[in-house]
Structures are given as structure tokens and as C-alpha cells.
Design a protein around this nucleic acid. Structure first.
Lengths: 193, 193
DNA sequence: GTCTATAGTTTGATAGAC
DNA sequence: GTCTATCAAACTATAGAC
């Protein structure tokens, strides 16, 4: 019995787009490069995504959104103490960065920043992703006994600090920013109990 | 007596590059657009920057580096308590974002992320900028009586959290991420005294 | 759904007159 | 130092056969 699904053309295109835009951003990623990496033809790309590059970017951000939300839930669910859980999360991001030779950072940030003032649809998709991730952290903090308003506020800073530290880690090719972010976030969260 | 300098062609080109790459990133910023905004010809651009787009990006990042380091020193120097000073700093970033209609975020981040794996020279310039800003914060923390090692570690997280929060604020067109980052960073710094 | 061919722009970069 | 003209390559997007 086959349990492993064949990956359809559409899905391959989305994944290729997500990976390339994660690494080089929106402007520098070409549709031909996407179709090549996805092992699809340019005709297929436009068949599935008639909106062209813009539509592809939105779909790629949604893909990254789901992917990271899942990782976040898994990692946070694996450790009881919320501060410790966030530290593990930072370490996990550092590991992913190092293992990709510092190529694969946040799958949303680069494209989001490039299109901030120019492509409202892409910007909204990125905004949604950040909000989703924040909610995952917020739930974890509430489950751990923090008051609702404190959990909601902390979730902002947890996600944003991890984002900033991941960016810094990628640029400096060093795990240090993420390790320190985990340590300091754990201390901050712990200070509210 | 004239104290206001004429702005030379070279400087106009660097400023235009910095502004455009801050807003749209490296890939989407064209040399013709730069020369137009700088009121210089394409010939002048290549006269001053024979290395072309790559050289321009490096120079633009260095420009943003100096500019933000100066702002950071000014703002941090204006408030005695380090936690409070960082909160003022976050508020200042939020003000800049709002006043530019959320267009002008960090002048380094976007270009840095786009070129992280592709353009080592640009990456190094960005790394240097972050290190410079970190040192400004570190000095402030040490002057405020924090131990050397604690100040050095905290400076990482202060800069990275501000970076992440500024990015998030830009994408969500809201001051909230920066306001919360200031509040939480002040609490974190205060917890070490 | 997949494929090739190509239209129509725009890009980074260069040459050479002034 | 400034300017115009231009090249070769790459880009997004479309058309139409299969």
C-alpha cells in the first residue's frame, strides 16, 4: 500500500518558489528559474498561477506560513516550561540555518520587506503569517498560566525577537544571536510568573 | 559665510541608492532609477562606482550604517536610564516608520537578506553595520553600570529585537511591535541591575 | 495539462563624444 | 566629469500546437 503521495506539479512549483524567494527574495527570483527547479515548464507555471509572479509569491508565503507554524507548534509542545520551550525553538532555528550553510532563513521576511510598500497583497499575506505564528506562541504562554494580556504582548516580542535574531544570525553566519535571543526571552518570560 | 555644503554628485548617488534599496531592496532597484532620483546621468554613476550595482549597494549600506549609528548615539545619550533610553529608541523608530507612511524601515536589512548567500561583500558590509550598532548599545549599557559580559550579550538582543520589531511594524503598518519591544527590552535590561 | 516559441520590456554595463 | 547611444542578456507574460 502506498502511503507516500506523489507530489503534483502545482505543489512542486509552490515549494520551489518558496525556497528560491526565501534565499534570494522576490525581485531576484525569476520564473524560469522556478520552473526549472520545480521540473515544470513555464506553461505549467502560468496554467496553475495565471496571476504570474505576484500570485506565486503569495502562495509561497502561505506555504512558509503553514510550514513554520507547524514547526513552532511541534517544538513548543515538546517542552513544558514556556521559557525553556522558546529557548529550544531558538536553537532549532539556529540548527536549520547552520545545516543549510546559512542559506535558509525565514521564508517570509525577505519577500515581505521587498514588497512592503509596493505589493499590498504580498504584504497582507506576510502580515497574516506573522499573526498566525504569534497566536501559536500566545496559546503556549496562556496554557502555561500567564494572564491573557501579558501572553498576547509577550507573543509579539517573542516572534519579533526570533525574527531579528535569525536575520542577524544569517548575516553574521553565527548561531550566537539566536542562542542569546533564546536565553534572554526565557528570562523575560520567566520574569512574569 | 556658507556653512551648508553643496551636495556633490557622488553623495547624491549614494543617498538615492540607500533610499531606494531601503524601500525596494537590491534586486528591484535599477541603476537607471538611481541615476534619475540622484539627478545624475548613468555615465556619472559608473564614473564614481566602476564596480556597478554591487559597489553601490556596499556604499549604500555603509551610508545607512553611519546614519543609524549616529541616531542611536543621539537617542541613547538623551536619557540616563538605559532601559528607558531603549524604549525611547524604539519609539523613535516607530515615529520614523509612521512618518514615511511605513516605507522607510532599516536601511540595511532588506539588501542584506537578499544577498546573504550570493554576495559576500554586501553581506560583510551589513555584518559590520550590525556590529557597529551593537557596540553603541553595549557602551551605553556598560556606562550604566552593567557588567561587561552582560552588557555585551544584552546588546545583541537589543539590536536584534529592535530589528525584528521594526520589520514587523513595517509589514503590519502598526507601531505596536516597536512599542512592545521597547517595553519588554526595558524590563529585560532592568532585570540585570 | 504540458510544451515550445516568442513578443515586448527592462536590465546592467560599455563606448566614445564633449 | 557629464552626457547620449547602444549592446547583449534577462525578464515577465502570452500564444497556440499537441
Amino acid at each position: 500500500m502506498r502511503t507516500q503521495h506523489e507530489i503534483g506539479t502545482r505543489e512542486r512549483i509552490v515549494r520551489a518558489t518558496s525556497l528560491l524567494m526565501q534565499r534570494k527574495g522576490y525581485g531576484a527570483t525569476g520564473l524560469k528559474e522556478i520552473s526549472k527547479r520545480a521540473e515544470a515548464t513555464l506553461g505549467s507555471v502560468y496554467h496553475f498561477f495565471p496571476g504570474g509572479k505576484r500570485e506565486l509569491a503569495i502562495e509561497a508565503i502561505r506555504h512558509g506560513d503553514r510550514e513554520f507554524a507547524e514547526l513552532l507548534r511541534d517544538v513548543l509542545g515538546g517542552t513544558r516550561d514556556p521559557g525553556e520551550a522558546i529557548e529550544v525553538c531558538a536553537a532549532s532555528l539556529a540548527k536549520g540555518l547552520r545545516e543549510s550553510d546559512w542559506l535558509d532563513g525565514c521564508p517570509v521576511t525577505t519577500t515581505a520587506l521587498e514588497s512592503a510598500g509596493e505589493e499590498p497583497d504580498i504584504q497582507r499575506a506576510a502580515e497574516t503569517a506573522f499573526a498566525n505564528w504569534r497566536r501559536v506562541v500566545e496559546d503556549k504562554l496562556r496554557e502555561s498560566g500567564l494572564a491573557d494580556d501579558i501572553a498576547a504582548e509577550l507573543a509579539h516580542t517573542v516572534i519579533n525577537t526570533l525574527e531579528g535574531a535569525e536575520m542577524s544570525a544569517q548575516v553574521s553566519r553565527s548561531e550566537t544571536p539566536l542562542v542569546l535571543a533564546g536565553k534572554h526571552l526565557a528570562r523575560l518570560v520567566g520574569s512574569y510568573r
